[in-house]
């Protein structure tokens, strides 16, 4: 192992630790968010160093990209006074939404708690590090995966694990996306995507760029989807690109959600999960196990499932953003027909 690479790895790790520390300790939420996004990008580098290009793609697209957009959009909300029935004290100073440090230090004994927790965390870190350096050589499941790759219908081992060997996990994971959207609906108190505030136009130059980029994004998504069969790529990365295209178009002022009927929203949210489910159940009919794809058709089925999943993932990711950014998580802004509930239960 050459010392230069070692130095690089060590430097990157130190950078990651510093960025994480800064993200947690920064005074302003805005700084926190920026440090966190930088941390995400640093992680993408780490994944590449660890020979995990699939994870790097996923992290850059989903972890840093999508979550970064959501975090920045949330800052907009937290940095101005609440608009609801807020009888509570209003924090009107924009950009200084982080009052927690001040609040905590006012408590007697808060300092002691803080010290204690820090000491506990340091102790945990010591224990973890000792355990980690003592881990043996393992062996992993690399050989098993390589041995079964033939019958999986794809050539890229990660895709084979995701869509075939451990397809059940991936299916549930698409379900988690769907579930998170349902959760966001519950938090927002209203179901659907139409209505709400449309974004302001970001100016001619950006609109122009976004219009130009969108076809390229869709094309890249299709390319990644197809590539997943033999190289890093696949449904999640492709899906997030589709979602990103939607988010950008929305930012450019396109009223994308205005024409979406509730039925289409429902279909978009469940398409990927449902397709997975249908093929999984279909496998039961000839006497197979759930999600057992016949070897001959496995490649085609996987491509079909991945396409549906990518569309659904893209749609859901877009829905996260469109729902949150247009109504700031408050039902009081629209839909007077469904007032904020006062259920006495």
């Amino acid at each position: 192992m050459n010392p230069l690479e070692h130095a690089l790895d060590t430097l990157l790790c130190l950078l990651l630790l510093v960025l994480a520390w800064k993200a947690l300790r920064a005074e302003h939420l805005y700084q926190s968010a920026i440090f966190f996004i930088a941390f995400g990008l640093g992680m993408a580098l780490a994944w590449v160093r660890l020979a995990a290009p699939d994870v790097a793609l996923a992290e850059a697209a989903i972890g840093a990209g999508l979550l970064g957009v959501l975090l920045l959009d949330s800052l907009r909300v937290f940095s101005r006074p609440p608009n609801g029935s807020g009888k509570a004290r209003q924090n009107t100073d924009p950009g200084d939404a982080e009052t927690a440090t001040a609040t905590t230090s006012r408590h007697p004994g808060a300092r002691a708690t803080r010290l204690l927790a820090t000491a506990a965390a340091a102790g945990l870190a010591a224990v973890l590090v000792t355990a980690i350096v003592r881990i043996g050589d393992g062996g992993g499941l690399t050989e098993e995966a390589a041995g079964q790759l033939e019958g999986s219908g794809v050539e890229h081992p990660v895709t084979a694990v995701l869509l075939n060997f451990r397809g059940y996990d991936t299916w549930l994971e698409v379900g988690v996306l769907f579930l998170a959207m349902l959760g966001i609906y519950c938090a927002g108190g209203w179901v659907g995507l139409t209505g709400g505030r449309e974004p302001d136009s970001p100016g001619p130059l950006l609109s122009w760029l976004i219009r130009g980029l969108t076809p390229l994004l869709i094309l890249t998504a299709a390319y990644l989807l197809w590539l997943g069969k033999e190289a890093p790529g696949g449904a999640f990365q492709a899906g997030v690109l589709i979602g990103a295209a939607g988010i950008l178009l929305r930012l450019a002022g396109y009223p994308l959600t205005a024409h979406l009927s509730p039925g289409m929203v429902k279909l978009g949210l469940t398409l990927g999960f449902g397709t997975f489910l249908v093929f999984g159940i279909a496998a039961l009919i000839p006497g197979g196990a759930f999600l057992e794809y016949p070897e001959y058709w496995a490649g085609e089925i996987i491509l079909l499932v991945e396409t549906a999943a990518a569309i659904s993932i893209g749609f859901t990711v877009f829905a996260f953003f469109a729902y949150l950014s247009s109504r700031d998580g408050s039902p009081s802004e629209e839909h007077n027909s469904k007032p904020s509930t006062t259920n006495s239960d």
């Binding site: 020979a51 995990a52 699939d54 992993g140 499941l141 995966a145 995701l162 451990r166």
Partner: peptide, 12 residues
């Protein structure tokens, strides 16, 4: 290639 199972798990 690196062990693909953890890679898939991490993407999940």
């Amino acid at each position: 290639f690196a062990d693909p199972v953890p890679h898939a798990m991490v993407i999940t």
